[in-house]
Simulated scan of single mutants.
Amino acid sequence: MRIGELADQAGVSVRSLRYYEQQGLLDSTRTPGGQRIYEEGAVERVQLIQQLYAAGLPSHAIVDLLPCVSTGMVTGSMYDKIRHERDAIDQRIRELAAARDKLDGVIEHVLRVGIHHDGQ
């Protein structure tokens, strides 16, 4: 599929796809006219890259982890990196849950005492 199709199907910009290629996260072949062509699983790969970025992983960590996803083969050091990144995500989840719980407390308080309107 061509770059515009992949961008549409994966829900990302063409610019993002070019960046992913520059970072070594995504591969394409070129037509004789120089247009990028992506393989069948590119949509799923781009979505995974997006999820990993959203989880806070830097591109260099994603580059290290993607071969595990593609091949299913994992070395001991790759496994350690995967576990480390998962642990870091778990920590961020705990921190976000704590922040949400504090906001819930503020919301409960506001509902008990009422909302004060500006200018009144």
Rank of each mutant, 00 (worst) to 15 (best):
H117I: 12
R30S: 02
V12P: 01
G4T: 10
Q22R: 12
A97R: 14
Q23L: 14
L48G: 06
D118E: 13
V110I: 15
L65I: 12
R15E: 06
R86G: 01
I115E: 09
P32Y: 01
I3S: 05
T75I: 10
I107S: 07
G114F: 09
S70P: 00
E95C: 06
R112I: 05
Y38P: 03
I37R: 10
R36W: 10
A99C: 11
L6K: 01
V14R: 05
L96A: 13
Q91P: 00
L25F: 08
V12R: 01
R30T: 03
G105Y: 11
E5W: 01
R2Q: 08
I89Q: 01
D87F: 09
L103P: 00
E95M: 10
V46A: 05
V110G: 06
R15Y: 00
I115H: 11
L57R: 06
I37F: 03
Q22N: 10
H117M: 11
A10N: 03
L66F: 03
V14S: 02
D27T: 15
A42L: 12
S28W: 03
Q91M: 05
E95S: 13
H60M: 08
V113S: 11
D64L: 13
A54M: 04
A61H: 08
A99D: 10
P67N: 09
A54Q: 05
L57N: 05
H60D: 15
E21L: 06
L111Y: 07
A55Y: 10
Q23E: 15
E5N: 02
Q23K: 12
G34C: 08
A61V: 13
Y38R: 06
G33M: 05
T75R: 13
M1Q: 05
G34V: 04
S70E: 12
Y19C: 02
Q50G: 15
A42D: 06
I3P: 03
D64Q: 14
A61T: 11
H116C: 10
L57A: 11
L25N: 06
Q91C: 03
V63K: 15
G76Q: 08
L25H: 09
P58V: 13
I115Q: 11
I3F: 02
